[in-house]
């Protein structure tokens, strides 16, 4: 009974946090604002749209200045959610990917000898400084237990196989397992459903990409993540466009799967599949907008912020690369608001 009571999420615990987030949601980039950024005459005009939404002023059109603004926005969002969320597992689930990304980078750099610092993202639960010290001193006692457990195994795998892709698969599996476990322990069906859909999305992308690269079922078995809504057993056989279509037919990812099947038929593009997949995830998250108050509001906002950062990166990088507004708009994901 006690465990059951601990898992009950009271929506009234989220009154303050939800109302505050609702007030901030109006600053998120709408589809209209994104298109204005794409169509703006100059980069400065595009930045003005961001400033209207409460972003800090970006003074340089250099990509590093944009990346700094993106990092600032991300850390502001996480700091806010950390301060208002009654349960810190909500931001933790979204921070895990940065920890695992940093871990991948550090372990790979041990083999390649390259400096890892430029690729590290100082946004996770463990700061980059702490992580560097932990890996250097081989002391993982202060690391989240689920992560600490796999560092040694990951390092061993890499030294044996010298295959960075295998390490990626291994750490992705550990990351999603920890995310799912945390979401289930938190007790939010909405968050658990989101993670499961993310796992399905990763599996779909991996299956299509690996099949396209001509990789065998052994690699697939290693790459596919357990825990999603779609059984990975169905994807471990010889992957055909029809199989992809049928396995994901009843999933929210059916449109993305059709795009993936088209890729395997040599008709579509991977970018179209990725876009449809991201849109399916955002469509799921949009349910949170209709919850008056509760953990869903915070979860939806965090994911929407991440999606917004991706959108800004696509727009700015696209503009800097000289793409036309239409070409950039084509690549944009759906907006949360």
């Amino acid at each position: 009974m006690r465990n059951l009571a601990e898992n009950i999420i009271k929506d009234t615990d989220y009154l303050y946090a939800s109302a505050r987030i609702k007030a901030l949601e109006k600053n998120l980039l709408t589809r209209d604002r994104m298109e204005r950024m794409c169509e703006a005459r100059s980069m400065e005009d595009a930045f003005k749209v961001l400033t209207e939404c409460g972003w800090p002023e970006i003074t340089s059109t250099d990509m590093s200045a944009v990346e700094a603004a993106l990092a600032h926005r991300r850390s502001e969002t996480f700091a806010l959610i950390q301060s208002v969320a009654p349960d810190k597992r909500i931001p933790a689930v979204f921070l895990m990917k940065y920890d695992y990304h940093n871990l991948k980078t550090l372990l790979k750099s041990e083999v390649t000898g390259e400096k890892p610092e430029p690729l590290l993202i100082d946004a996770g639960r463990v700061s980059v400084k702490q992580l560097l010290a932990m890996v250097r001193e081989n002391n993982f006692s202060d690391m989240p237990p689920a992560m600490a457990k796999i560092v040694v195994e990951g390092r061993d795998l890499l030294s044996r196989t010298r295959d960075p892709q295998l390490l990626d698969f291994y750490l992705d599996r550990a990351q999603f397992a920890e995310m799912l476990e945390t979401a289930e322990a938190f007790g939010s069906a909405f968050l658990t459903g989101y993670i499961k859909l993310m796992i399905d999305s990763v599996n779909l992308r991996a299956a299509v990409r690996l099949r396209r690269m001509g990789k065998g079922s052994e690699t697939l078995r290693f790459a596919l993540l357990p825990g999603g809504n779609v059984s990975i057993m169905n994807l471990q056989h010889d992957i055909t466009p029809d199989l992809i279509d049928s396995v994901f037919a009843n999933s929210p990812l059916s449109a993305a799967a059709s795009a993936g099947a088209a890729v395997l038929r040599g008709e579509g593009s991977l970018a179209a599949m990725d876009l449809a997949s991201d849109d399916a995830l955002l469509h799921y998250l949009k349910r949170a907008k209709y919850v008056a108050f509760g953990a869903e509001t915070l979860i939806g906002y965090l994911a929407a912020q991440e999606s917004e950062l991706t959108a800004v990166r696509i727009i700015i990088a696209g503009r800097l690369a000289g793409l036309t507004a239409d070409m950039i708009i084509e690549r944009l994901r759906d907006a949360y608001v």
Binding site: T12, L15, Y16, A17, S18, A19, R20, I21, K22, A23, L24, V84, F293
Partner: peptide, 14 residues
């Protein structure tokens, strides 16, 4: 009290 908690959230931002 319930309405007040939500009101505080809105007021913090606006």
């Amino acid at each position: 009290g319930i309405a007040g908690e939500a009101a505080s959230g809105v007021l913090t931002e606006d």
